[in-house]
């Protein structure tokens, strides 16, 4: 009798996968929307695409409360120090999605004032192509990121060895 109860009511898992399951289904994004991609990101949040279906409706504009930085739009040389600062303010664990061509590579703006890809300076986990990406594309990128979060190893979060 007791045996059966345990079988039907208790799930055994590892701590790692339980934590990852929780993390990946409740990512709190912080949109760093600067340009056109910011508008498309609004479309991702709005009724038709609705990112809430993937557990990411809690948009936080404070870096200290979020764990996913979505860089949407071109980053100028004046903005880059701000972006670096915001990235540093997000507590671990944190992930970065580079949305659109401009954030990933500079896009069409091959000029003196646009950073040619934010990944030169901050680590990026998922790149979403498009100028701007369709909302479906962003959702695809988001699912890819969820897979990534699901595969995290807790052991990786040991502090870095002193250099």
């Amino acid at each position: 009798m007791v045996q059966d109860d345990i079988k039907s009511n208790v799930l055994t898992t590892t701590l790692e996968s339980a934590i990852n399951w929780g993390r990946k289904n409740s990512l709190w994004p912080m949109p760093f929307g600067t340009a056109c991609c910011g508008i498309e990101f609004m479309a991702v949040l709005a009724a038709r695409t609705d990112l809430a279906r993937f557990g990411a409706e809690a948009i936080r504009f404070s870096p200290r409360q979020s764990d996913l930085l979505i860089v949407a739009g071109r980053i100028s040389i004046k903005m880059m120090p701000v972006l670096i600062r915001i990235y540093e303010q997000i507590p671990e664990p944190k992930w970065v999605m580079s949305m659109g061509a401009c954030a990933s590579t500079g896009g069409v703006f091959d000029t003196y004032s646009v950073i040619q890809g934010i990944d030169q300076f901050i680590p990026v986990d998922v790149y979403v192509p498009g100028c701007p990406p369709r909302p479906e594309g962003v959702v695809e990128g988001f699912i890819k990121l969820q897979d990534l979060v699901g595969k995290e190893k807790l052991a990786d979060y040991a502090p870095a060895p002193a250099k």
Binding site: I84, E88, E92, Q120, F121, P123, Y157, A158, P159, A160
Partner: peptide, 11 residues
């Protein structure tokens, strides 16, 4: 610009 890394070990 300065390059920022994640500050944790990532394999």
């Amino acid at each position: 610009f300065p390059v920022v890394d994640r500050g944790i070990q990532k394999k």
